[in-house]
């Protein structure tokens, strides 16, 4: 018989290196003579989309399009060290470094622009829509490219290089007390599963996933992170296990170590919750790792809801479920 159930899972995740380790990201920025820009960071895009995020941030700061920003990353001859692509840290930490480096280049640009536009202070200038404008007086403006190339002929260059360090303290090794991570990301998911009581097979039908990421700098990529996280959560909960014999891996191939295929995947509803994180770039924090965490629990709790057995050892294989069902019917 096939029985359905739903389960809830919540999780939290402290982002960054944590525990007082200096979590530093650095970035270099150059505004070119036509108003396009290069951003250099050590931060590597491993598929999660960090380079796109940095292009968006720099473009927003300078009033240009992301396509006008070239992000160069992960080349030790060229880029500054921005730490590792892990700990759900690049959007927050390296994103902040990019903002700070852009801000330097922008500050000298605004000062120059104030002179060019006969405005007494750089505070009175804004960058929008490829233009340098006097705030409140949009008719007094110059195309950004024109201003930058004019500046070049006068010997002005607009460069930036800066670092951002996350806030973290070491925990006391005797008591564990301290403020090890900042910020924390949160998520909650509901899974609906169908358990086949004859075979023990579990199919995850639907997952609704709500994740607090501060601000979705790129909703398309955020949805992708959530779906990818759910897939790894499904694998963790139901399918995957490195099996050992005397320390040696018995199943070192994809025919024996099963990761989810498209047929194992539920229908996904991704919900982006934006609780602004004041210290983050445009209020953003991270999403990468948290995306998979609630899935594990939501599935296990849904199995219990469906057939009344509590799986405490992962993965929840058909064998374990059948054994638990047999145990249950004895009672």
């Amino acid at each position: 018989m096939k029985k359905r159930g739903r389960g809830l899972g919540c999780a939290w995740y402290g982002t960054g290196y944590g525990n007082g380790f200096p979590d530093v990201s650095s970035a270099f920025v150059e505004i070119h003579d036509d108003g396009s820009v290069s951003v250099l960071t050590g931060a590597i895009d491993v598929g999660q989309g960090s380079s796109t995020i940095f292009a968006q941030i720099a473009a927003e700061e300078l009033g240009i399009d992301p396509e006008e920003v070239t992000v160069i990353s992960g080349d030790t001859d060229v880029t500054p060290d921005s730490g590792t692509s892990a700990a759900t840290r690049h959007t927050y930490n390296t994103g902040n470094a990019v903002i700070k480096a852009v801000a330097q280049a922008k500050a000298s640009l605004l000062t120059y622009a104030a002179r060019a536009l006969h405005c007494t202070t750089a505070d009175g200038i804004e960058l929008k829509d490829h233009k340098v404008r006097v705030k409140g007086e949009p008719s007094r403006s110059l195309p950004l490219a024109e201003l930058v190339s004019k500046a070049r002929l006068e010997g002005e260059r607009f460069l930036g290089s800066d670092s951002y360090t996350a806030r973290t303290t070491r925990v006391n090794p005797e008591t564990g007390q301290g403020a090890p991570y900042w910020p924390y990301a949160f998520g909650s998911q509901v899974a609906e599963v169908e358990v086949d009581t004859e075979t023990g097979n579990v199919q995850v039908l639907r997952v609704a996933a709500a994740h607090d990421l501060g601000k979705a700098i790129n909703p398309l990529q955020a949805e992708g992170q959530i779906a990818g996280g759910i897939a790894q959560g499904v694998g963790f909960a139901l399918l995957e296990e490195v099996r050992l014999s005397e320390g040696r891996i018995k199943n070192p191939t994809f025919s024996q170590y099963l990761i989810p295929t498209v047929l194992d995947m539920p229908e996904i509803r991704a919900i982006l919750v934006e609780e602004p994180e004041g210290t983050g770039p445009y209020d953003a924090k991270g999403l990468g790792e948290p995306a998979m965490l609630p899935t594990i629990a939501a599935i296990v709790n849904a199995i219990d809801d469906a057939v009344g057995v509590r799986i405490t050892s992962l993965p929840a294989t058909p064998e374990k479920i059948l054994a638990a069902l047999a145990e249950q019917s004895k009672k």
């Binding site: 779906a227 990818g228 759910i230 897939a231 790894q232 990761i259 295929t261 498209v262 047929l263 996904i268």
Partner: peptide, 19 residues
């Protein structure tokens, strides 16, 4: 579509956007 794509593994996307 799902059946036709089921021989192709992806570890990143969760297949959602691929479908």
């Amino acid at each position: 579509i799902a059946v036709a794509m089921s021989g192709n593994l992806c570890r990143c996307t969760g297949y959602d956007k691929i479908l």
